[in-house]
Every structure is written in structure tokens, then in C-alpha cells.
């Protein structure tokens, strides 16, 4: 079972932001510098217009909520509200062009977030968790790349990994950086493949123990089911129990090193643990040969699964572009889930 990211945020949000910010002891000057234009915009008043205020809408959807001055800043991005809305969406979709040095310099102080995977094992697990939480909170509050951070949380939830299970205590920090943050504005197939072979994911959903070495070995279905149910097709997405079992067979042999400390966290494929027989996933035959490569490439398992994702126009973007999904979130007609 899992701890959802949403629940974590609900429980801890207010207090944690204060605690997180307090811990790093930011000099006041930094905040002053960052807080931007906080000109007094008069007393707070509830909206009186009948239609949606596009700017409030955009800020609510694409950010963690307005900070003082945000409304005025976004409004100033265009002549009309619609122009300002479009400009803000455009701006947020290109996070690499947004100067985020203040946030960067604060988060850099959480040194474990920058360590290579193998080094993570040098840290106490509590410290890693605490720095991940503090990093998430600080970025939510301070980053000017708000949509990027919102989408990081979205994908963290989608590809949820409970950081209390086994080596996930250490590897989750690597997943956060090398899978989620790396692909947050990339393409969905790449994100999915990175997640499939992420050492933390191999731990969390038991992929590392999924093998068929002897004839009567039965594969471990944990990851295969969640790949179809949670990561791609959805629980009523048309797959069967047989598909779950066939996907599990496809992924036998992938594992992650544990124990030997120098190689801890290394992902590898062990041919002797792999089920070499032909498989049929979602009605498509997958030949045994060179499956090792095929997990990740465009002809492989993930491509088969992705090919069966819903293809209505609205969610077309979901297939290729994570940013496309962000755009969907922004459209005023879209009901947030």
C-alpha cells in the first residue's frame, strides 16, 4: 500500500512550509529580494464577476497558489486578460528560460538531493526523507518555475513510490531527480521507460524479484499490474489478468543490486532469470529475442502498452508530451481530478 503524495501534503503543508523554511535559516534579505513587487493592492475582496477570472484561474491551476504580487505580475504580461493568460502559460511551459537562481541557491543547501545514486547510501534515511520533503516545500514556495514544480508533484503521485520500503529509503531521492524531475516536461514514453527501470521502482513494486529461473517459478505480478492499472491504461482500461501475467513474464530478469555496497542501486538484466518464451500482451505477440533492449525501445513492451492508451483527441497529448498534459490542466473547461 502506498502513502499518497496528496495526503502527505494535506497533513503537513502549513506547518512543514514554516519548518522547512525555518530550518535553512534564510537571510531576510534573500526573501526581500525574491518577494518581488508587493505593492499594496488594497483589501482582499471576493470575486464579483460572473465569468471566471482567467488570471486567477491560471495561477490556481498552474502554480501552488498566488503569492503577493503574482496577480498583478501576470496581469501585466498582456494587454487583455486573455493575452496575459496565454503569455503566462507560455512562460511556464518553458521553465528553462525562467531565472530561478534564488530558489536554486536555497535548495542547493540540501546536499543529499545532489548526490549520485551510490552516494545516497551514505546518508541516514531520515535525513534523506527530510531533505526531500523540505526540497519539495521550498520549491513549491520559492520557485518561479511553478508549473514545473506542480507537474513534478503530479508525476510523483502518478508514479508513486513509498520511501519506507527497503532500499527505497535511499533510492527514492534518485528517482525524484533522475526519473521524475528529469522527464517532468519531457515525453511520457521516456518518463514511463525511465520509471520502469528506476532502481527505486524496481524495489517498490518488487520488479527486482520478478524472475523465472526454474520451470515452475511464477513471476511476481506486482509491477506488471500497476504498470497497466496505475501508470498507463487505468483499472478499466481493457487489460485482463492474463495481460498482467504476460507483462510480468516480459519483465523477468531485471533487478537491482543490493547488499554489495559499491554496486548498490545498480540496475541490471540477468538473462538466466528471464522467461525466454514468446508472450502475448494486449493482443500483440512479443517475441522472445532481444527483449532486453525491447523493454526500452520504440518496438518494445512499453510501446505495445502505450499503443493501447486512450487516444481521444483531448488526451492525445498525454502520449507524447508531459507539457501537453499541463496545457490540459490549464484549459478553463477542464475539470480537475
Amino acid at each position: 500500500m502506498r502513502i499518497s503524495r496528496r495526503r502527505l501534503l494535506q497533513v503537513g503543508s502549513g506547518a512543514a512550509i514554516v519548518a522547512a523554511a525555518g530550518c535553512v535559516q534564510l537571510p531576510d534579505a534573500l526573501f526581500l529580494n525574491f518577494s518581488g513587487d508587493t505593492a499594496d493592492s488594497g483589501p482582499f475582496a471576493p470575486p464579483s464577476a460572473k465569468s471566471i477570472d482567467l488570471i486567477v484561474h491560471a495561477i490556481n491551476r498552474l502554480s501552488f497558489g498566488p503569492r503577493p504580487g503574482d496577480y498583478e505580475r501576470v496581469q501585466g504580461l498582456g494587454e487583455s486578460d486573455q493575452e496575459a493568460f496565454d503569455a503566462y502559460v507560455e512562460e511556464q511551459l518553458a521553465p528553462e528560460k525562467i531565472d530561478d537562481r534564488v530558489c536554486g541557491s536555497v535548495v542547493r543547501r540540501l546536499e543529499s538531493l545532489n548526490q549520485p545514486l551510490g552516494e545516497l547510501f551514505e546518508y541516514q534515511e531520515r535525513l534523506l526523507l527530510s531533505e526531500m520533503v523540505r526540497g519539495a516545500m521550498l520549491r513549491a514556495v520559492l520557485s518561479k518555475r511553478q508549473l514545473f514544480e506542480v507537474m513534478v508533484q503530479f508525476w510523483t503521485d502518478h508514479f508513486n513510490i513509498d520511501p519506507s520500503k527497503g532500499d527505497c529509503k535511499w533510492l527514492k531521492a534518485g528517482d525524484d531527480r533522475d526519473v521524475i524531475r528529469k522527464h517532468t516536461m519531457g515525453t511520457f514514453p521516456e518518463l514511463l521507460r525511465a520509471s520502469a527501470l528506476s532502481p527505486a521502482m524496481l524495489w517498490y513494486l518488487d520488479g527486482r524479484e520478478n524472475r523465472k529461473q526454474k520451470d515452475d517459478d511464477k513471476p511476481n505480478e506486482n509491477y506488471a499490474r500497476e504498470l497497466l492499472e496505475l501508470h498507463t491504461l487505468g483499472v478499466h482500461g481493457g487489460y485482463t489478468q492474463r495481460d498482467v501475467m504476460e507483462v510480468a513474464r516480459c519483465l523477468t530478469g531485471w533487478t537491482v543490486r543490493s547488499g554489495e555496497w559499491l554496486q548498490k542501486g545498480n540496475v541490471e538484466f540477468k538473462p538466466r532469470r528471464h522467461d525466454d518464451g514468446p508472450k502475448e500482451v494486449l493482443g500483440q505477440r512479443i517475441d522472445a529475442a532481444s527483449l532486453r533492449q525491447k523493454v526500452g525501445d520504440d518496438q518494445g513492451l512499453m510501446a505495445h502498452v502505450l499503443g493501447r492508451c486512450p487516444t481521444s483527441q483531448e488526451v492525445e497529448s498525454y502520449h507524447d508530451s508531459c507539457a501537453g498534459l499541463a496545457l490540459m490542466l490549464a484549459s478553463p473547461g477542464f475539470q480537475r481530478f
Partner: peptide
């Protein structure tokens, strides 16, 4: 859970 055990000393749904 499944009547038969899997190869990792566990059982599936």
C-alpha cells in the same frame, strides 16, 4: 491471494 507461491517467496493478487 493466489494459491501458488511466486518465485520470490510471495503470493500475487
Amino acid at each position: 491471494r493466489r494459491v501458488s507461491e511466486n518465485a520470490s517467496f510471495g503470493t500475487d493478487h
